[in-house]
Amino acid sequence: MKQKIWPILLLALLLFIPLGFIQNQINYETIAYDLQTNLLLMPGEAGDMVLAGFKGIAADLLWINVENYWHTGQHFKMIPLFNMVTYLQPHWILAWSLGGWHMAYNVAADVKTVQGKYYWYQQGVQYLKRGVSYNPNKYDLYFELGWTYYNKGLDYSNSVRFLKQAVMYPCPSYVRDVLAHAYEKNGEINKAMEEWQKLLKTDFKGVAKRMIYDLKTRGWATP
């Protein structure tokens, strides 16, 4: 007697129902743990890579172009590539920090007018802020923002604002040191002193001692 085989197909089809539930759970987890990915359709090899599911490689290919433009002084051409890379991999900190630095420093230096320089400085800052919105639980981009405000913009109040955020997360000692300098420049000497006192217990002990001494004897530590 011939065996019935349709129940096998029926079982296979019925199993798609629990599979759908599992997929829903995966979708939920993907959102909960911030594992979503963005699709960027673009021409060339990088586009092919994206279609085949190799977004990391696509971002790397674009990054190699960024490096090439950087070494040949074509700073302006780097901007759209930075945007593509960070769109594909928004959690790649280096892309945000280097992109922000290039805009605020290198592209700004290339521009001749004062307005142009200020425009690119602002673009760099905005880019870093966008990076922070994707990576709010790491010190890196808060520090980059704080440093750009401090060093490039000479905007010490904003610098303090972001460096204060940076030290809330695990970070190297130099981040707190820059915060202390920013406090001092912002006229908050006591707070600067407090930060250097905290650094006395770290590998920045020597620097902190010198800064405290300078503050007490000369009244200023940061030139």
């Binding site: 993907t30 743990y33 911030d34 594992l35 990915t37 977004k55 990391g56 991999q89 959690h91 900190i93």
Partner: peptide, 13 residues
């Protein structure tokens, strides 16, 4: 793509 940029992946996932 997430692992290379340091995003923690929970075992549950």
């Amino acid at each position: 793509d997430k692992v290379v940029v340091g995003i923690p992946i929970p075992w549950q996932y």
